[in-house]
Design a protein around this nucleic acid. Structure first.
Length: 217
DNA sequence: GACCAGGCACATC
DNA sequence: GATGTGCATGGT
């Protein structure tokens, strides 16, 4: 596909979704730290389950890296349990907290001052943080212009003939980076719209009726 | 009761 | 590098 055509296609997809859903204000969360925690908890998990875990953490006043690492493991696991994979995810939360404290004085604001490429390397080196989780944190918690690729992104673009079904994370991300303005607000909203659309439609093959992207391309 | 959900690490070939 | 498997809960 020619670059100009890809730009038009992405623009058309965005316009359709925006018209259908309006502003999504994605990602939900009251603070950058809460967003980072949510990014880890939502790995392969429905958001409704993540919400329960976050409510538990809030009630225990644990949405703070220092309090989190000071909490008995069992208590933390109990809070995290509703989001599934709770033993793994509890470890992953602690790994992230330890990193945040060791490298950024426990402050997401401090973290956000460092260059995005360095932060991405740091995050990917942590056990339990892969590309999507790293980019969730960088875009939504650190306000860095980096596009988040997820299952929905891949599914929607491949179903509309804009990418191969087995395209790599990097190549898919590159499509967005080279065809859109490197704009934090745009990237946030575009991904939010993809999540909304992916949840409501595009689950079953072929394309579903009443999808905002129906008959688009 | 099966199937799915916004992943990731690790083993094996 | 590609492919398979374990990890766990809650909604449909």
């Amino acid at each position: 596909m020619q670059p100009r055509s890809m730009k038009k296609s992405l623009n058309a997809i965005y316009t359709r979704m925006e018209k259908h859903y309006g502003p999504t204000h994605w990602w939900p969360g009251d603070s950058p730290f809460e967003i980072a925690i949510g990014a880890i908890l939502t790995q392969n998990t429905a958001w409704s389950n993540v919400e329960k875990a976050i409510v538990n953490l809030k009630q225990k006043n644990l949405l703070c890296p220092r309090r989190m690492i000071a909490t008995p493991l069992e208590e933390l696991e109990t809070a995290v349990r509703p989001s599934g994979y709770y033993r793994q995810k509890t470890k992953r939360l602690l790994t992230f907290c330890e990193y945040l404290i060791a490298r950024h004085q426990g402050s997401m604001a401090q973290m956000g001052k460092r260059p995005v490429a360095e932060l991405r390397d740091d995050l990917l080196a942590l056990n339990g943080i892969g590309q999507e989780t790293a980019d969730d944190i960088l875009l939504y918690a650190c306000e860095k212009p980096i596009f988040v690729v997820d299952t929905y992104t891949k599914r929607i673009l491949s179903r509309h003939g804009l990418a191969e079904e087995n395209i790599s994370y990097h190549d898919l991300q590159k499509i967005f980076h080279t065809n859109l303005a490197m704009d934090v607000a745009l990237f946030k909203e575009f991904h939010g719209l993809i999540v909304y659309t992916g949840k409501d439609f595009c689950r079953s093959l072929p394309r579903c009726e009443s999808c905002p992207l129906q008959d688009l391309l």
